[in-house]
Amino acid sequence: MGSTALPIALPALKTNPKFIFFTDFDGTITQQDSNDFMTDNLGYGPELRKQGNEDVLFGRRDFRDAFRDMLDSIDTPFDRCIDLLRRNITLDPGFKDFFEWARENNVPIVVLSGGMEPIIRALLAHMLGQEAADSLQIVSNQVTSREGKSINEAGGWQIVYHDESGFGHDKSLEIRPYARLPAEERPVLFYAGDGVSDLSAAKETDLLFAKAGRDLVTYCEKENVPFQTFEDFSDIHATVKDIVEGKLTHTAAATGRK
């Protein structure tokens, strides 16, 4: 009975792929983290932001609370935030080629973000084009106005978390239904990320890509989570292509730091 309903419950299965690529957005698909950029330039600045990230990494605070504090320090209207981000956030240099290869080879890309969907869609449309942005499944948090205000006035917007977890968006909840499929139906699962918003996803897939020099590498080494580092998506592209073509196993690819 379950298999006939799976494509609806699990959208990435609709083309019957043998591989699915889950990925973070900020600092992974992009070269900069849009939320960090806003906090550093419009909010309470890099020192408090970095302290919050460290507190999350070492278990002293939930990501949910630290991230809300970051965003609540930003008073700039939402439309002006998006304009600023369009001018300053750039795409990972290897992502467009990987995106096009993945579409040609039936490897669905699912964006799992601790950020906010309206920002992600606006940036992807700006960087990849509207059609490409619309083609991607994005699971993220939302934005709403504060009581009595419009999101496009000073102090007018706030984050709406995806779920009630300590992450605000527990990415593992999206991945696990795929991971628990019967062996004959289950695709190989990848995940790429860089920071503290990715901790919930780190142990859920067959191969984890962790951005070199970032907090996710520290977490993986501390928790003995197998991973491969990457500098940009050209590294990911090469490894995933080899696995898809049967030249490499996902287990052998988990080589840790390069």
Rank of each mutant, 00 (worst) to 15 (best):
L91Y: 06
D75P: 10
F78L: 07
G114T: 11
I120T: 09
I119L: 10
I120N: 10
P77E: 02
F67R: 05
D62P: 01
D79W: 00
V107Y: 00
I82D: 00
D62N: 12
K96H: 12
F78R: 00
G52M: 12
G114W: 08
T90W: 01
Q51Y: 11
A66R: 08
L84G: 00
I74T: 05
R87Y: 01
R60Q: 11
D65S: 14
V111E: 06
D72L: 12
G52E: 07
T76M: 11
V56C: 13
L84V: 08
F95I: 01
E104C: 03
E100Q: 13
I109N: 10
D83M: 06
F78I: 01
I120A: 11
D69Y: 14
D55S: 14
V110S: 10
A66V: 15
K50C: 11
M70V: 14
G94R: 03
E117G: 03
R61M: 12
P108D: 05
V110M: 11
R86P: 00
F58K: 11
D69S: 14
R86K: 15
D62I: 04
E104K: 14
P108R: 05
N53R: 14
M116E: 06
E100R: 12
D69T: 13
S113H: 09
L84F: 12
F99Q: 05
S73H: 07
N53H: 13
V56Y: 06
F95Q: 04
R80W: 06
D55F: 12
K96D: 06
P93Y: 04
R68L: 15
R80I: 12
R61N: 03
D92C: 05
D72K: 13
A102W: 03
F58N: 08
V56W: 06
D97L: 07
S73D: 03
I74V: 15
R60G: 04
G114N: 07
N88M: 02
F95M: 00
W101F: 09
L91D: 02
R61G: 00
T90P: 00
K50Q: 15
F98D: 03
P118Q: 08
L57M: 09
R80T: 13
E117D: 14
G115V: 04
I119A: 03
Q51M: 15
I82R: 01
N106Q: 04
D69N: 14
P108L: 08
L85K: 01
P118F: 04
R49S: 11
E117I: 08
F78P: 02
I82H: 05
C81E: 09
E104M: 07
G114L: 03
I120K: 13
D83L: 07
F63R: 11
D72W: 11
